[in-house]
């Protein structure tokens, strides 16, 4: 009789602990995912022609109009 009581107690504790475990936070199961794409800077327009030309020293040298400055007729300190 005493042995049956002990068995029932063990079973009861086991059921109680099992119920507690089912209420806890479960560990998420890993799910295979695709790798994230790398961040890419996207310009506002496809080609910024202003920047393209004005950062190109050779292009500017080629296209710059020579400045025609009339010789000053002023005399003395201004």
């Amino acid at each position: 009789m005493r042995r049956v009581g002990m068995l029932l107690l063990i079973l009861g504790v086991g059921v109680f602990l099992g119920a507690c475990a089912s209420q806890g936070i479960s560990t998420p199961t890993p799910v295979p995912t695709a790798p994230l794409p790398e961040a890419v800077l996207t310009p506002l327009s496809q080609t910024d022609y202003c920047v393209q030309c004005h950062t190109d020293k050779e292009a500017l040298i080629e296209t710059a109009k020579p400045e025609e400055k009339a010789p000053s007729e002023s005399e003395g300190v201004g």
Binding site: V51, H54, T55, K57, L60, I61, A64, K65, P66, E67
Partner: peptide, 8 residues
């Protein structure tokens, strides 16, 4: 130089 004035 003229080009130098506008080189960004």
């Amino acid at each position: 130089e003229p080009w130098e004035k506008v080189l960004i």
